[in-house]
């Protein structure tokens, strides 16, 4: 009986302020969509980081005048290094084939590059991909390359010159000694490239997109919160006679507040369902649709993850609106 009373009150209340209700639902939906999207982005980027960082390689580009003996020596050195898991040699021809494949959409660029202009390289997979920076530094030092001169690496100056060298730099030096074996510089290395550095740049861009999405969703969330507070006050004002009588005859605060709070929660749940549908649409039309080419770069977004968003945003939306509603009403009813 009481449940029926409360439910009737909820729907009558929602219908009475139908424009406000719609505004509340839309704001909720938009802010929860943003929240869900940025949450998924966050999880997705985490996955991508794991996936990519696990595959980080150090490319050792060789000079064009390297002799077969030097190449063999270098290969042995790299393979015997305790930090190295695998060494893969890419010839000039292989490099050219890969280049053609990568830039097949840009035939002019491919034409301008001859099969001879790309350097051969060793692709070194490390046992611990996190050590790639240290490995690169050590190798460069062993090869007698001036690390400070390489543009893509500002962090690693030569350890002896830099008293604040990081601990990882220290382990790197140890690795270098084992890699080099003796003090004679390794010949034939032109450049050492640490893929992790490139990835870090990409991920820092993604990270700022992430924080922007999060900031927008928080701002929208605050707007939704204020709208809930306002809507509930309007609803409470339109029912002030009932509220006064209820207080007079000793209705509990719970009984007075429940219909208003449930109104807000109902709107929030409806908003979160809309937000969920928007996320589903986003997956179908964006991730699986127009952006599906990016699936080679992005790890694919699973349905499980999209489904996971429904309880999360429903919970967040419901909690925010019920707490806001409760607090607003407490202040309002006390008057």
């Amino acid at each position: 009986m009481r449940a029926k009373y409360v439910l009737t009150e909820v729907f009558v209340g929602l219908w009475r302020n139908v424009t406000m209700t719609i505004a509340m639902i839309i704001t909720m939906a938009v802010s929860l969509t943003m929240l869900g999207a940025s949450l998924m982005l966050y999880l997705q980027v985490g996955d991508m980081k794991d996936w990519y960082y696990d595959k980080v390689q150090v490319s050792v580009f060789l000079t064009s005048d390297i002799s077969d003996q030097q190449r063999a020596d270098l290969k042995t050195r790299l393979e015997t290094d305790p930090a190295v898991q695998k060494v893969f040699w890419e010839s000039k021809e292989q490099a050219y084939e890969r280049f053609k494949q990568q830039f097949r959409d840009l035939p002019d660029l491919v034409k301008s590059i001859g099969p001879d202009s790309l350097p051969e390289s060793f692709r070194v997979t490390l046992k611990d991909p996190n050590q790639s920076t240290a490995f690169k530094t050590a190798l460069e030092k062993a090869a007698g390359l001036d690390t400070t001169a390489t543009t893509d690496d500002g962090t690693a100056a030569s350890p002896s010159a830099d008293p604040s060298a990081s601990p990882s730099g220290g382990t790197g030096t140890t690795t270098a000694t084992t890699a080099a074996g003796d003090t004679k510089p390794i010949a034939g290395i032109k450049q050492v490239v640490d893929q992790k550095k490139l990835l870090e740049k990409i991920f820092s861009i993604i990270g700022s997109v992430q924080s922007m999405a999060l900031i927008v969703s928080v701002a929208m969330g605050i707007a939704a919160l204020l709208l809930v507070a306002n809507t509930i006050q309007v609803a409470a004002y339109s029912k002030r006679r009932e509220v006064a009588v209820m207080k007079l005859v000793g209705a509990s605060n719970w009984f007075i507040q429940a219909p208003f709070v449930l109104e807000a929660v109902f709107a929030a749940l409806l908003g979160s369902v809309l937000a969920f549908l928007a996320l589903v649409a986003g997956k179908v039309f964006l991730m699986d649709g127009s952006l599906s080419d990016l699936n080679q770069i992005l790890t694919p977004l699973s349905w499980g993850r999209v489904l996971l968003m429904l309880p999360i945003i429903a919970l967040i939306g419901g909690l925010i609106s019920s707490i806001t509603g409760w607090v607003t009403l407490r202040a309002y009813i006390k008057k």
Binding site: K247, L248, V249, G250, A251, S252, N253
Partner: peptide, 14 residues
């Protein structure tokens, strides 16, 4: 306090 206020008011007509 709180919940008891409403119970208390039930013993008073107004």
């Amino acid at each position: 306090r709180g919940w008891s206020i409403s119970k208390f008011r039930r013993t008073i007509g107004c």
